[in-house]
Nucleic acid binder design. Structure first.
Lengths: 213, 213, 213, 213
DNA sequence: CATGAATGAGAGTTCATTCAT
DNA sequence: GATGAATGAACTCTCATTCAT
């Protein structure tokens, strides 16, 4: 009754991406372990070898991977200490690229936070959930801070930073909803256009400074 | 506008709003008929008197109500034949207001289109589903057209209209995700800020023309 | 898809007895909801209408019913304030009768306490579990007290009351294991013999005093 | 008595005891191969090297070991041809000691016979099961015979031998349920008290004859 | 011998839906 | 209209068991 000749071993990450894809297509609640398993040619039960805590665990893993990737990139950009406009441009582009490069994970971050929040407070994953939400807030703050700095320095038009950030992130998150890997728009184009749009919205039409990084 | 016996009308709409609220909180797949029924003090079975086709029917009804409202408002604005900048401002504001005034319905429109798309093609509701998706496309086109016109007339900075519209709608849809009825931001403020942001992004800083409508 | 023409309604108690019977035959862990359901001509899912908390709930209900019955009878006997030997005889007989009259429930009380104890401490039923265990201890104490009194009064041979009670209850509980409703021994015979055996073991061969009750 | 390579023998017995312990704690149906394996620091799969027929095999092995021990001891006592009262006393004590010395195995014999009986008739272990049940009946008969003889010889009060034996074995079996290795009662005390109780119940208060064995 | 990965057969439970009352 | 009881299909998760390594 067992199978799989070892050359075709399924790795944790494969399952994770499969889960993300299924979550994107059908939503967490609409996704079944069987859906996920089928993508990696396993049976539903076998997933529990890799993610003993089950579906919930899988969701948290997906979200964390996504957040890890994005935060790492943003922090790398911030570490360069570029001027606000350039920093924001790169952040928007990096974020948009991340979303298009792994739409499924991005979509999960957009759509399934709600699922997380509905977790009963006595759930064993509650701690991990809180940790994730904290990181998400931190992520949002990274954008806020840059925008605030730009306004203070007079490079950006004064705006309600909270509202503006929500608008920006809404637009960016939404990419994961409509973007098709096989569509005509490439990630770079989308990223560039997004940056341009929101920098313009901040009254900053300065062309891309080609700082050799 | 003649009405059916008041009680009934109210009942149906109550259920609809209850459904929208539950869909917002738990997602379509995570919502149960019992959740919805409890909100209107009925039992799950009783809902079938009002929505014979069941859960799916409820979702479509919610989405249609939402779309009806928004499209009606947008068309009223377009009928006024105002200049593109002013038209767009009002459209954005009207849309944002609609989202904040009935967050649940708005959230359903954001989150549950996916559910609709996954409908098996042999489903009896497939026709209604297609009708809805067509109207959603029409809705998006209303924005596109105005933006295109503004660019042609030179009032707006030239942008990729498709991408720009996606960004705009992403930001607007996202409102339904973070907006709290009991929060400190009122719908008007949000609406105004959204309009300002995206008009600015189009290079149009003209202050609100107070055309007496 | 629904069924059952109302004349054949299944009552809560029917399910309870069915559960007890299945628990007796296969043990709690070995019993399935389907086994229980089949006995009352329902499907497994339907049991959740009557016992929303499921299998665990069913076990606790069975145990509580059993304990209720026995304790009530014992207390009635104690209330008569008869001399220790007569009291003990009647208690043993009443207990034995209770066991033979509802073997399944009795067996559950014997075999499934263990199941209860293994309940994780964060289980929602933990409180009910504790309540049950407390009542079981009280039940055991009823016997102890009578035996102690008899020893003090010199009617009973001095024995280790704790150990003696365990022996007595072990013998009584065991009835539920071997007793067959269709066997040749009637409950009364068993009850009388048990009383006689343990009164004899206490050095008390006094014949049954026929106090007209 | 020549032994197999020491390691193996030990291994097999370790597993057996581990199984008995787990069966006692959680019942056969509630025990998993993983539970058992963990106790001997193996994985579930590895158990199949030692007990190829799996869980069922383990149970039968546990029960047989228990029965072997007890029957051997009882037969040794019977072989001494002592008078009935003394024989019975020693049998009761030996049995009680066996139960307290290996509670887990004893508990399995008490609780898991039921499991055995539910074995489907086409099960490969059915023959072994029947053999075990036969030995259990033989075991019970050993007690019966001694009691009968005692009655015939007039040393014991006349009782219903079947019922009396059930009472005796019930009390003895029950020890395995309440006995705690770390409790205040030692096996010898329990054994002595049990013997005393049931000899008293047979009207035989003769003190322990200290036949030097 | 031991393990880790896998399987397949349930088990408990949930839920949309139906229908007699 | 409304309800309560019922169904059947699905879903998450568990587990004995197998086998390549």
């Amino acid at each position: 009754m067992p199978r799989k000749p070892a050359d075709q071993t399924v790795r944790r990450e494969d399952i994770l991406l499969a889960a993300a894809a299924v979550f994107r297509e059908r939503g967490y609640a609409g996704a079944t372990m069987a859906h996920i398993a089928r993508r990696v040619r396993l049976t539903a039960g076998s997933l529990y070898h890799h993610f003993p805590a089950g579906k919930q665990d899988l969701l948290l893993a997906v979200l964390n991977v996504g957040m890890d990737t994005v935060i790492a990139q943003l922090e790398a950009i911030l570490a360069q200490n570029l001027p606000p406009a350039e920093t924001l441009r790169r952040m928007i582009e990096a974020h948009a690229m991340a979303v298009t490069q792994n739409v499924s994970v991005g979509a999960a971050m957009v759509f399934e936070i709600r699922t997380l929040i509905k977790l009963p407070p006595d759930d064993p994953s509650a701690a991990e959930r809180d940790a994730f939400l904290a990181r998400r807030d931190k992520f949002e703050r990274l954008f806020r801070v840059v925008i605030e700095r730009g306004i203070q320095e007079g490079v950006f038009r004064p705006v309600d930073v909270g509202l503006f950030t929500k608008a920006l992130l809404g637009a960016q998150n939404w990419i994961g909803v409509w973007y098709r890997e096989d569509g005509k728009l490439r990630g770079e184009q989308i990223a560039a256009h997004m940056a341009e749009t929101f920098l313009a919205a901040l009254g900053c039409f300065c062309s891309k400074t080609d700082a050799s990084d």
